[in-house]
Amino acid sequence: MGRRVDEAISVELNGERSAITAFSWRGERYAVQSVGAIWTEPRRWWRGEGERTWFQVTACGLVYELYLDHQTRGWFLGFVRG
């Protein structure tokens, strides 16, 4: 269960750019406590849609699913889960 969001965010990466340390959504900054599953989702590539890599992160006790759109190189918040 969760709430679909699909809004643009900005993310902060660690020095090696290998992990997300925080993200900002609707003007608020969320420090990432832990990173869970990471996976890549195929989309309708035949329509020009890029793949998305998803990151399941925990912040403020909630699970947030962020994704990086390979086509636009933009970061988005996909879901907020309980």
Binding site: A37, I38, W39, T40, E41, Q56
Partner: peptide
């Protein structure tokens, strides 16, 4: 292990 939550 395909890394998706469902698969995990």
């Amino acid at each position: 292990n395909y890394r998706t939550p469902e698969n995990r």
